[in-house]
Design a protein around this nucleic acid. Structure first.
Length: 586
RNA sequence: GGGCGUGUAGCACAGCUGGAUAAUGCACCGGCCUCCUAAGCCGGAGAUCGCGGGUUCGAAUCCUGCCACGCCCGCCA
């Protein structure tokens, strides 16, 4: 609790100094207590035992005696060698209602470029791809909540083999041929008929079959390879054909992402760096590096073993025919990104770890910084790995539709008086929020198994749980407005706060650590910790709601109401930070 | 084979820059709607923190060996 720590630190430091301890240790050792009932801040005194030759418990006791009274301190206790400090609740209330959270929010705005999703535009968005998008977008939102200036960017792979296959298929196969080839597979869900990502992926899949099984496979492969190479040399007619093939697919994917609340500020095409000459110039400078090497056919690589890379140390950036590779273009892209922003974050699947290492080392070799990377582990289904080929896949469109349907069923049961349109609006928001929260709630590096049951959980520990607390606060606001609308903007006198109920203390203490948590989450790229925080805050609000009746016998308790409003705001902003929709009624 | 990551109650998951009784949700048991939205609240039970060593006043956390799982080790993207 930084709010308390700034008050407390000088007091603890002088107390320690008086006892013959190094006061500079306090800054680091005064830490948040682990359990709430241990206090807000805690100082373990064990390390001091050696220097003083006194038992830790006695040291804690001595420091306790030496700490003077202060308005911020509620209670100081010495327990088992720990010095525990509890903030004074009325002081917390005064600080928080006086705007301490705004004052303490990220003052130094940074410019951050976050690249995420960047999925190949060759088919519908599925749940496996969703972890990147949801993680990335949440990071974008949380950085903005902290006050940073963020650009959310999608790197469009507009020249690889996948796009080439799609373009080839659309040019050479008729709809009938495609359906004949895919006869054994599940047809397009009628709900998504006409949505280009669902439609065109059929062409892609048919082409994949032909590449493997048809008599013509060799010719087809040659044709596709020719397209790939033409694109890599910047052939504009080929690149244009590619774009006509993938753009409608990408638009379909973006429509799905939009339904999840995910939007981008900029789309940057991979081909840009080929056509503008950046890649060519890059390969030239790489060729001049000390660690450059050449293969027999003229292909070139860097020996990154000399820079500490283990395993396979040769990093090829140029083919024998002189063309570039994906990673080469990625380096050119990063050099360009460093011109746009002074802080870069990439969201990448764990399969990209080696390449990220290669790109990072190469960037450093060229005198650039390496970007920060948030890696995540893949989502699989209970049946195993997700695979479009084997039909073992869950499309995001289907998941969102199902989530909405289930949410609508819950609303219909709980609020029979709502009309159809209201129910649909609530259900859409609840569905999207639940889906996002289910994924954001677990730490990225951990494996994730998608289960319908979890994604569609609307109870404690879910997005709807948080949403529900927020609607309570909104509902209270409406009720207060009916009692006396002048109270909505009124200030509250915090100078003489009397007894504070338990539920309110918990809420105050939770609110007080908001900025600490957000700062950490943004610094360490760990959105799931903020999800955990919001859950905790919603829970605290519910307890407050139980203990502190804001409107009783027709009169409004202004202190309670002011705190409810503060919590409502923090909840609302936090929900937006996670991409959860802050509904006012549900 | 090598590199990186993960392993915590029946299930899922937090804590991992060392600190106190390992947090939370689901499921399970028991209470709470004439009272601001019960998608809620309160209480209970449930954990050899993968296994073995080591460092430390103190280890889920750091080091090391082993086991299981995931990802990577293309002149693919």
């Amino acid at each position: 609790m930084h709010l308390l720590k700034t008050q407390l630190l000088p007091l603890i430091e002088s107390a320690m100094e008086g006892l013959g301890l190094d006061p500079s240790l306090a800054e680091k050792m005064l830490q948040p207590a682990r359990e709430p009932d241990q206090g807000d801040l805690s100082l373990p005194c064990f390390p001091f035992a050696k220097t003083l030759g006194i038992a830790p418990a006695a040291i804690a006791e001595n420091i306790k005696e030496a700490v003077p009274n202060h308005p911020s301190i509620g209670e100081v206790t010495a327990v088992n060698g720990y010095l525990n400090i509890l903030a004074e609740p009325s002081w917390l209330a005064e600080q928080l209602l006086g705007g301490a959270l705004e004052d303490g929010a990220g003052s130094a705005k940074r410019s951050v470029l976050i690249e995420h999703t960047s999925a190949n535009p060759n088919g519908p968005f599925h749940v496996g791809r969703a972890r990147n998008a949801i993680l990335g977008d949440t990071l974008v939102r949380l950085h903005r909540l902290w006050g940073n200036d963020v650009t959310a960017e999608y790197y469009v792979d507009d020249m690889g083999k996948q796009v080439a296959v799609l373009a080839w298929a659309l040019e050479h196969l008729s709809g009938d041929e495609v359906e004949r080839l895919l006869a054994g597979r599940e047809p397009v869900n009628p709900l998504w008929a006409g949505k280009a990502d669902h439609e065109r992926v059929r062409w892609y899949q048919a082409a994949q079959l032909l590449r493997k099984n048809s008599e013509d496979a060799a010719n087809i492969e040659a044709a596709i390879t020719k397209l790939v190479h033409a694109s890599e040399h910047g052939d504009t007619s080929v690149l244009t054909a590619f774009e006509e093939a993938y753009q409608p697919v990408l638009d379909g994917m973006l429509e799905t992402l939009g339904r999840l609340g995910i939007h981008f500020d900029r789309f940057t095409k991979e081909s840009l760096f080929v056509t503008n000459g950046d890649v060519g110039r890059l390969m030239e400078s790489l060729g001049n590096l000390e660690i450059n090497g050449s293969a027999d056919n003229g292909a070139q690589y860097l020996d990154l073993g000399a820079r500490g890379l283990k395993g396979k140390t040769e990093f090829f950036y140029r083919r024998g025919d002189g063309s570039s590779l994906y990673a080469t273009r990625d380096i050119a892209y990063h050099i360009w990104k460093w011109q746009q922003s002074n802080e870069l974050i990439n969201v990448l699947g764990e399969d990209h770890k080696l390449q990220a290492q290669q790109v990072g080392l190469t960037l450093e070799e060229l005198g650039h910084k390496r970007p920060e990377v948030m890696f995540y582990s893949f989502i699989k289904l209970p049946e195993g790995k997700m695979s479009t080929r084997r039909g073992n896949v869950v499309f995001m469109d289907d998941l969102l539709e199902e989530a909405k349907a289930q949410a609508a069923a819950v609303v219909t049961e709980l609020r029979p008086e709502y009309d159809q349109e209201t129910i649909a609006n609530i259900a859409e928001a609840v569905g999207r929020s639940a889906v996002r929260f289910n994924i954001i709630n677990v730490s990225p590096e951990k494996g994730f198994t998608f289960r319908w049951q979890d994604a569609l959980n609307f109870e404690s520990g879910s997005a709807p749980f948080i949403m529900y607390s927020h609607t309570r606060a909104c509902s209270i606001r409406k009720n207060v407005q009916e009692v006396d609308s002048s109270l909505l903007n009124g200030s509250v006198d915090t100078s003489s706060i009397g007894d504070i109920p338990e539920g309110m203390v918990a809420l105050l203490r939770t609110l007080a650590v908001h900025n600490d948590r957000l700062e950490k989450v943004v610094r360490e790229h760990r959105p799931h910790l903020f999800a955990e925080y919001l859950l905790h805050l919603a829970n605290a609000y519910n307890s407050f709601y139980r203990d502190c009746h804001i409107i009783e016998n027709g009169s409004v308790n202004q202190l309670y109401f002011a705190l409810s409003e503060l919590a409502r705001n923090v909840l609302k902003n936090g929900m937006e930070g996670l991409g959860i929709v802050p509904l006012e009624t549900m």
